[in-house]
């Protein structure tokens, strides 16, 4: 999942080759530098590609402090219900 997250970050940020430069410990806010709109697009893409429901009630800033911690958080997520 870590590699998938990196590829999505590259796509959202619009910087070709970014995924290969990001380490697993890269901070999603500070190192990747997502702004609010990019963050929302990132969340939307995570939802769609990984098919998970992001539990915003459990989520915290610590989960954005590295790609690995986000990946661990999302691994435990419920699948997104089929479109109502």
């Amino acid at each position: 999942m870590i590699e998938q997250i990196k590829l999505i970050l590259e796509e959202v940020r619009g910087v070709p080759g970014l995924s290969t430069q990001l380490s697993d410990t890269a901070n999603i806010i500070e190192d990747v530098g997502l702004d609010s709109l990019e963050m929302l697009t990132f969340m939307l893409t995570l939802e769609q590609r990984l098919g998970v429901r992001i539990d915003f009630e459990r989520m915290a800033f610590s989960h954005l402090q590295s790609i690995r911690s986000l990946s661990e958080f999302l691994s435990a997520a419920d699948p997104l219900k089929a479109d109502a």
Partner: peptide, 16 residues
Amino acid sequence: PTVAAGLARLRSMEGY
């Protein structure tokens, strides 16, 4: 509007 639209599209925002 950008944040409103972004939130609106997120299915994970449902159910709270």
